[in-house]
């Protein structure tokens, strides 16, 4: 197993956002983590990414315990992430921005630049290298996030709602990008709202609801699962939990 989450619980005051979740991702797998609003997927994602330590439970990556470790340590071990709201380096150009990730493995300037250029071209930002990041479109910013994460040469990448805010064409382009990653043998953990996208690309899906894992299996199986259907339809009716995920 590449990533192994064991009995993970996360509490905020009285609220239990993630409740005793077990989950694993094996090498080369593309796993989708889905759930209605307030299900606790962003929280789970943040704990894995090292944003905050869990209240209980463990997260291990390639056999190393990483729960509560700072994100830079996690990244160094080969687990990179993107942000749902792209965090761009506003004073830099696209190339400079992507190079920031490349410096992790290549301190030599030319080597870092070469790596950054290579990734940028693969990601489809090759023609935008010298553009200031502040003038990128939302879709480009999302790509930039992926590029910055990829240049750290991870073994696994955590994608936080990369489809959010994209139109239909852009979603398809992003899907192509993710399948490129699959071809490279990258392991991917996907947190996603866009079910259509998840169904198309994922090898396996984990569904959270109210902080509890309610399903784990092949996309087709999961979508036919009665519990999952109720969770989604039920969520459409009751919106009181909506803010808990924020």
């Amino acid at each position: 197993m590449m990533l192994e989450v064991t009995s993970l619980t996360m509490r905020f005051g009285g609220l239990v956002a993630v409740n005793d979740v077990n989950m694993s991702v094996s090498r080369g797998e593309i796993l989708g983590l889905i759930g209605p609003n307030g299900a606790g997927k962003t929280t789970l994602f943040n704990v894995i990414a090292g944003v905050f330590p869990p209240s209980a439970g463990t997260v291990s990556f390639n056999g190393n315990r990483i729960e509560g470790k700072s994100p830079d340590v996690t990244c160094n071990l080969g687990l990179a992430r993107t942000f749902q709201i792209p965090q761009v380096f506003t004073s830099m150009t696209v190339l400079e921005s992507i190079s920031v990730g490349a410096f992790l493995r290549h301190r030599n300037f030319a080597a870092a630049r070469a790596k950054a250029t290579e990734v940028a071209e693969r990601i489809g930002l090759g023609s935008r290298l010298e553009v200031p990041t502040s003038s990128l479109t939302t879709a480009e910013r999302k790509r930039l996030e992926v590029a910055r994460a990829l240049t750290t040469e991870p073994q696994m990448i955590l994608l936080d709602e990369v489809m959010a805010g994209l139109n239909h064409t852009e979603v398809n382009q992003m899907l192509e990008l993710v399948s490129l990653l699959r071809d490279d043998g990258m392991t991917v953990l996907f947190v996603e709202h866009n079910l259509h996208a998840v169904m198309k690309i994922c090898d396996r899906i984990v569904v959270l609801d109210h902080g509890v894992k309610i399903a784990d299996g092949l996309p087709k199986e999961v979508m036919e699962d009665a519990g999952v259907v109720t969770a989604y339809l039920g969520a459409a009716v009751s919106s009181d939990q909506e803010n808990a995920d924020a």
Partner: peptide, 11 residues
């Protein structure tokens, strides 16, 4: 520019 993104880039 962004402490979050910097740390996420392994810095």
């Amino acid at each position: 520019d962004s402490e979050e993104a910097a740390v996420a880039s392994g810095i």
